[in-house]
Each structure stands twice: as C-alpha cells, then as structure tokens.
C-alpha cells in the first residue's frame, strides 16, 4: 500500500493504461504543457509525448466530437473536461454521438471513450461553475457513469473505465483531488464498474451516497455512533448501471434509508433510488426514504449561502434521526 492523493491515483491510472495500450491517449484543455488545470495529468506529456497528450483549444463541443470520432475508428481517448460544467456545451456529442451510435448502428459502431474531469460544487465559484451532472448523465442509456470517492477506487475505477468498450462518464471532485488514501501498489489493481461498496457496516439505518458526500456521510455516521445509532454507509461508486442489489440487501438489514447527493432534488439520484426501493424493498422499510440534496436553487457565491445550499454533516444526521424517529 502507498499513501496517494486522489490526484496522483488518477494520474497513475492513466499512465498505467497508456503504457498498457498504445491506443489510449489524453486530450483536453491544458492537459499537456500546463500539466492539467488541476494537475491531474502531471508528467504525462513528458512520458508519452505530444502525440498522446494533446492540448486542445477551449472548444468543448468540437473536441468532444473529435474524441468521439477517434473512438469510432478504434482509438481509446480520455477526454478531460476542465470541469464538467463545460461538458454542457459538449453534451450533444456525449449523448447523441457517443451513447446512441452502438444502438443506431445495430451493434456495429463502438465508442470506447472516457470523459473525465471534476464535477459538482467546488468552492466559491458561483452557479455556472458548481453543478452536479450525476443525474443528467445517469439518465441516459448507452453510457456508464462513475463517481469515485477514495483514491484506491478512483484509480481502480478509472482503469476499468479506460478498458471498458463503452463510453464512460467519469465524475471526479475538485475538493477530493488533494485528499490522501491508501492505494494498493499492484499495477493490476482494478475495480469493476457497476458495483457499490459498503464502506461502513451498520444495523440501524443506511446512507446511500457517492463522491465527496461519502466523506460527509462517514462523518455523520461517526457522530451518530456516539449517540447510539449504528449507520451503514454505501458508496455507490457507479451511478449507471446502478447497483440496486447492494442497496436492497442493506435495507433488508437496517429497514431505513437516507440518500445524500450534491445535485438538485428533482429527478435526482435520490429520486431514482426512491423509486427503485419502492419496487424492490417496500416491505422492508420501517420509515419513508429521506433525501438530503443540494437546495433547489442555482449555487450562490456568498460563503454563508453556499454552505446552506449544499448538504452538510448536520443535514445528514438530521435525516438519519428522522428515519429512525429520534427527533
């Protein structure tokens, strides 16, 4: 095991896969000479050269389309969005060109591409630079959607995403880049897509979450433990395909569930989980599902308002107490 930041783990995943397969290359804004706007691609230009680490102009729609075209021809592009906020300009190529073409071609045209970059709320950058795209992308068939929390998962899941023959949207988090975790040294360490992880076992209630909010959920679980409430925490890791089996198995044990996400409530990840739990685990519930989400407003700039707009540990503990009828 080595102690690595999420940033280093992501870089190592790309470097290892680029060594393994000459068809893998990286393109995006500032990924080469600048070493990445958030330094995730640090050192890749030096090792792999400008033919495989390509700076693009600031034209997301265009370079996303170029990446998809290259993938149609059999290359394996990793397209970095400086942040996923800018992927809204490129979403036409992600959905219409990458996600639908296998189906529209009767199975002929493959598109092995990864779109990656930081997603969600960063810190004090206002509404246009602070948005969670988890529910946007996970709504759509034809792609897989991944959102890791720990560095080990970030590395293992990114390696799977690069090797996967399908288009993958890989949602990182800027605030996680500098956090350190133990990561296995084995270069063949890899984590399957589509499998959630129980990151803390418990008996009284289940928190289902992903990305940065996993940390907040674990903190909430610690606080609740001191109050005699034993919480299980599930890190979804992959949002599409959604690992509903792991969620249902946990509900069968705890009979209570809270979902946590930074995105807006309507049609969100929590809304989808609520619907699936209704179908698959209704009889096991002792309380209605509770959602903790970003507030239903564009993200404000002012420090106090920003804090109010995104899920905090207190919001999670309150939701758990509510489903446990401990208010």
């Amino acid at each position: 095991m080595a102690l690595l930041t999420v940033r280093e783990a992501l870089r190592d995943a790309m470097a290892e896969e680029m060594r393994r397969d000459p068809k893998v290359f990286v393109m995006g804004e500032e990924v080469a000479q600048y070493q990445g706007a958030y330094k995730v691609t640090q050192g890749l230009l030096e090792e792999f050269g400008e033919g495989r680490v390509m700076d693009t102009p600031i034209t997301e729609y265009g370079f996303a389309g170029v990446g998809v075209g290259a993938a149609f021809k059999g290359l394996k592009p990793i397209v970095e969005f400086m942040t996923f906020n800018f992927s809204m300009q490129a979403i036409d190529h992600i959905i219409n060109s990458a996600a639908k073409t296998l189906y529209m071609s009767g199975g002929q045209m493959t598109c092995p591409i990864v779109f990656r970059g930081p997603n969600g709320v960063a810190s004090r950058v206002g509404a246009q630079h602070s948005q969670c795209f988890a529910s946007w992308y996970s709504h759509c068939p034809g792609i897989k959607v991944v959102a890791p929390y720990s560095a080990a998962d970030a590395k293992g899941l990114l390696k799977s995403a690069i090797r996967d023959p399908n288009p993958v949207v890989f949602l990182e988090n800027e605030l996680m880049y500098g956090r350190s975790f133990e990561v296995p040294d084995d270069p063949d360490y890899i984590v399957p897509l589509g499998k959630a992880s129980v990151v803390r076992e418990g008996t009284d209630a289940t928190i289902v979450t992903f990305s940065l909010a996993v940390g907040k959920a674990l903190e909430a679980a610690d606080r609740l433990a001191s109050q005699g409430v034993n919480v299980e925490v599930i890190d979804l890791r992959t949002l599409r395909p959604l690992d509903i089996d792991t969620i249902v198995a946990s509900i069968q044990k705890t009979n209570r569930i809270v979902t946590v996400e930074e995105g807006w409530p309507q049609s969100g990840i929590g809304a989808e989980i609520a619907a699936q739990v209704m179908t698959h685990a209704f009889d096991f519930l002792d309380a209605p599902l509770e959602r903790v989400t970003g507030k239903d407003v564009p993200l404000p700039y002012a420090a106090n308002l920003e804090r109010l707009a995104i899920p905090q540990v207190d919001d999670i503990t309150a939701a758990i107490r509510k489903v446990c009828y401990k208010n």
Binding site: G69, K73, D92, T101
Partner: peptide, 24 residues
C-alpha cells in the same frame, strides 16, 4: 461512419476520424 441526424455533428466526428488516421 454514418449517417448523423444532428446538423453539423459529422464535422467534428469526421475530424476525429482524421485524428485517428494521423495517430495510426
């Protein structure tokens, strides 16, 4: 390589095919 229903999409997609020809 298609056959694309979104007006103009084939232009960056085609440019990506060209990138692949150059890459290979």
């Amino acid at each position: 390589y298609g056959g694309h229903g979104i007006v103009g999409a084939q232009v960056p997609l085609g440019t990506g095919l060209a990138l692949a020809h150059k890459y290979e």
